[in-house]
Computed example of a mutant assay.
Amino acid sequence: METVLQDHPILNHASQLGKRLLETEEIQRFRLAEKQVQNSHRVNSLIEEIKRKQKELVHAKHYQKPEYIRQLERELDRLHEELDNLPIVREYQQSQVEVNDILQILTDVLAQAVSEKLDVDVSGDVGGGCGSGGPCGCR
């Protein structure tokens, strides 16, 4: 069956759609922001410092050192806030939200188009669709 799916014409359309998505302004902005974040010395040093502090926190919790735990948690909060307030990180996060929104809308549009033609519930309710013994009564 997998061989049949590999040659299915709809996969060609999906591939073309994927290529067109890569050309959108939102995806281009995301890729640029991602590259800037990856190449930022400040971002990378903050991430490394956060990782070190997280490891220290694990050890402090293991050895039950409450005062040191509180100190590390405060330092981690400060580091996360500093990282989150960097303009390139904010731009990256915003562009990520925009890309996720586009992909979610695309998924919803496809699901709705299929649902309307096949009379299938796409509401996302667990246990409520065909074959589940849900509201339609089928099993």
Score class of each variant (00 low, 15 high):
residue 64 Q to R: 14
residue 64 Q to V: 09
residue 37 V to Y: 00
residue 9 P to A: 02
residue 52 R to L: 11
residue 117 K to C: 04
residue 134 G to S: 05
residue 105 I to M: 08
residue 53 K to M: 06
residue 132 S to H: 11
residue 1 M to K: 09
residue 136 C to P: 06
residue 77 D to L: 06
residue 27 I to L: 13
residue 95 S to N: 14
residue 131 G to R: 10
residue 115 S to P: 09
residue 72 L to M: 01
residue 135 P to H: 11
residue 88 I to S: 01
residue 127 G to S: 08
residue 92 Y to E: 03
residue 43 V to Y: 01
residue 89 V to W: 03
residue 139 R to V: 11
residue 62 H to T: 10
residue 102 I to L: 15
residue 102 I to R: 08
residue 119 D to L: 10
residue 54 Q to E: 15
residue 3 T to M: 09
residue 128 G to V: 06
residue 56 E to C: 03
residue 108 D to K: 15
residue 98 E to F: 05
residue 26 E to F: 01
residue 47 I to Y: 01
residue 54 Q to F: 03
residue 47 I to H: 04
residue 51 K to W: 02
residue 86 L to F: 07
residue 25 E to C: 04
residue 27 I to M: 15
residue 99 V to E: 03
residue 62 H to R: 09
residue 60 A to G: 09
residue 85 N to V: 04
residue 101 D to S: 13
residue 49 E to W: 00
residue 60 A to F: 06
residue 93 Q to D: 11
residue 104 Q to A: 12
residue 105 I to T: 10
residue 72 L to C: 00
residue 19 K to L: 13
residue 30 F to Y: 15
residue 111 A to M: 15
residue 60 A to V: 06
residue 39 N to W: 02
residue 138 C to Q: 05
residue 104 Q to I: 03
residue 137 G to D: 07
residue 3 T to K: 14
residue 20 R to F: 04
residue 118 L to S: 05
residue 96 Q to G: 11
residue 94 Q to S: 11
residue 68 Y to E: 14
residue 115 S to Q: 07
residue 65 K to V: 02
residue 34 E to L: 08
residue 106 L to K: 03
residue 75 E to W: 02
residue 100 N to W: 05
residue 103 L to N: 11
residue 39 N to C: 03
residue 106 L to Q: 08
residue 84 D to E: 10
residue 21 L to D: 00
residue 28 Q to F: 01
residue 71 Q to V: 10
residue 124 G to R: 07
residue 21 L to Y: 03
residue 59 H to E: 15
residue 128 G to Q: 13
residue 87 P to C: 05
residue 121 D to E: 09
residue 94 Q to G: 00
residue 121 D to F: 06
residue 16 Q to K: 12
residue 31 R to I: 01
residue 134 G to V: 10
residue 84 D to H: 09
residue 124 G to F: 02
residue 44 N to T: 04
residue 3 T to H: 09
residue 63 Y to L: 10
residue 55 K to I: 05
residue 72 L to T: 03
residue 36 Q to P: 00
residue 71 Q to G: 02
residue 50 I to F: 05
residue 42 R to H: 06
residue 80 H to L: 05
residue 74 R to W: 03
residue 82 E to M: 03
residue 129 G to I: 09
residue 14 A to E: 08
residue 139 R to W: 06
